[in-house]
């Protein structure tokens, strides 16, 4: 069959479809010429959509079973569009027996470490058990909400009710519709969200403070990832207020760096470095903040300190490179002069 014939067949196809709507096979539905079901064509096909359709037809078995061609099409689709829904494979949940020995050991020791840790906190909470409920929020006053009743008698005018139609003014109805629409739009414009106000309860136990601090830090990380830096900063502030540690202060430094509040970055990094002298992330962030504050000499000194400890750190190397261009004078003083003596 030539290409021209194919095209004419495709043009005729809609009429055929309408008549035999129910009996349509997948092949007819996708309108793929039968000669496309072939290794050469599939190998060259760059259209993910068509490959998916071909695979769908092949898997349905309507045109016969071709296991090797299916596999071949799957492989091709994996090259063109690895995220295709048709490539989703289902496996079984792994049993521990099917894992490598070292993997099992790693999992068990990790879990064991967590178990001993968490039982301590659990114990602390049990010892300080309290039955009363504290909350800074009032009990809600009872309200009941019923959904607005729908008018059961529809106000639709019958087509034969001529006197009613005489009274009907399309212009006012249109105006009414427009007005209600505008109202909706104005309401949407008005909406402005108030900020979160946090009043801190003192935590009675260490476990509670750590728990709250961890949750807030995780929330902060999520906001950070989705680019909501102001919200992230708020979460990290809450986390630090509950219980400060290297991780949440370090994260706050990262947010402040994004928000270009370099003074805050510096003070956070200094705090971290007091707790953990060789903290890599804090040193890097400190260098970056100093660079943006145009204190190149100090920045370069910090970066070079990182490189001393970890010569393969790419980010540090790049920053150092950049900084050296900006302050060519750095380090000159230490260079020794070699003078020839006769």
């Amino acid at each position: 069959m030539s290409l021209a014939e194919d095209i004419s067949k495709l043009a005729d196809a809609p009429d055929v479809d309408r008549r035999t709507d129910r009996k349509k096979t997948l092949l007819q539905k996708y309108r793929i010429p039968i000669q496309h079901f072939e290794y050469d064509y599939i190998e060259k096909c760059k259209d993910a959509r068509e490959l998916e359709n071909i695979l769908h037809v092949l898997r349905s078995g309507e045109e016969g079973h071709y296991p090797d061609l299916i596999r071949f099409t799957e492989e091709r689709l994996n090259v063109i569009n690895p995220k295709s829904k048709l490539l989703r494979a289902c496996c079984t949940v792994l049993e521990k027996s099917s894992l490598q020995k070292d993997e099992v050991e790693e999992l068990t020791s990790d879990l064991q470490y967590w178990l001993t840790n968490i039982s301590k906190k659990d114990q602390e909470l049990d010892n300080r058990k309290c039955r009363s409920i504290h909350s800074d929020a009032e009990v809600r006053t009872f309200k009941e909400s019923r959904e607005p009743k729908k008018d059961s008698k529809e106000r639709r005018i019958k087509s034969t009710d001529y006197s009613a139609w005489d009274k009907y003014d399309p212009d006012t109805e249109l105006l009414k519709m427009e007005l209600s629409e505008k109202k909706g739009i104005e309401e949407a414009k008005k909406e402005e969200k108030p900020k979160k106000k946090v009043s801190f309860n003192r935590f009675a136990t260490e476990a509670e403070a750590t728990f709250f601090s961890e949750r807030e830090r995780e929330k902060g990380n999520e906001f950070f990832k989705s680019g909501d830096y102001e919200e992230a900063l708020q979460c990290y502030n809450d986390s630090i207020a509950a219980k400060a540690n290297v991780f949440n202060i370090n994260n706050r430094a990262a947010v402040n760096l994004k928000l270009k509040r370099y003074n805050d970055v510096l003070s956070d990094c200094e705090t971290v470095l007091k707790l953990d002298k060789e903290n890599l992330k804090a040193q890097l962030r400190k260098a970056e903040a100093l660079e943006n504050m145009e204190r190149y000499d100090e920045a370069l000194r910090t970066v070079e300190h990182i490189i001393e400890g970890d010569p393969n750190n790419r980010r540090a190397q790049e920053t150092a490179q950049r900084l050296r261009e900006k302050c060519p004078n750095f380090g000159r003083k230490t260079r020794m002069k070699i003078i020839e003596i006769e």
């Binding site: 409920i133 909350s135 009990v139 809600r140 006053t141 009872f142 309200k143 009941e144 909400s145 019923r146 959904e147 607005p148 009743k149 729908k150």
Partner: peptide, 19 residues
């Protein structure tokens, strides 16, 4: 129904269908 354990027997909010 929405409950606050500080309030006995009665919910603090209720949502039901119109009819």
């Amino acid at each position: 129904l929405v409950w606050d354990v500080r309030q006995k027997d009665m919910p603090v909010a209720k949502f039901v269908a119109a009819e």
